[in-house]
């Protein structure tokens, strides 16, 4: 009956006991992975470890990897049902962020292209 008592406990809906959602280990793992990604970014940017024209792409990949680590280990965005709404909202946010950044760069690059070689 103990488990049933917990489910049918008479209380205000939405008020719950706090259960630890994460552990010291998960934060420490996140910290380790984030430090690795940071050091990799700084090394890639300052050395010729990567083929030089590919460095910006390498940096972007490392940045996305580190953002992923932060989302999972620090913000606890997981595959559980309580994360579903947050992930849908995040996906929409990323769409807007992508449209604003990529759209601006595209439009202004196009303008710069049309401004080139103007007769003076």
């Amino acid at each position: 009956m103990d488990s049933d008592d917990r489910v049918f406990h008479d209380r205000t809906p939405g008020v719950e006991e706090y259960e630890p959602t994460a552990s010291y280990l998960s934060y420490t793992a996140g910290l380790g992975l984030a430090i690795l990604a940071t050091i990799a970014s700084f090394v890639v940017a300052q050395t010729n470890l990567l083929w030089p024209p590919g460095v910006p792409i390498g940096l972007i990949v490392l940045a996305f990897a580190q953002i992923g680590v932060h989302l999972v280990f620090f913000l606890h965005l997981g595959s559980g049902p309580e994360s579903t709404n947050n992930i849908i909202a995040l996906a929409f946010g990323l769409l807007i962020v992508f449209l604003v950044i990529a759209g601006s760069i595209w439009i202004i690059a196009n303008l710069n292209w049309n401004m080139m070689d103007m007769p003076r």
Partner: peptide
């Protein structure tokens, strides 16, 4: 109903996403 903890975090998450859009 969802636990308050989840509702509060969801609302704040929406605010943070709007902050990400500002930064974008």
């Amino acid at each position: 109903p969802a636990p308050t903890r989840i509702v509060v975090a969801y609302g704040f998450w929406i605010f943070l996403l709007s902050d990400f859009v500002l930064f974008s």
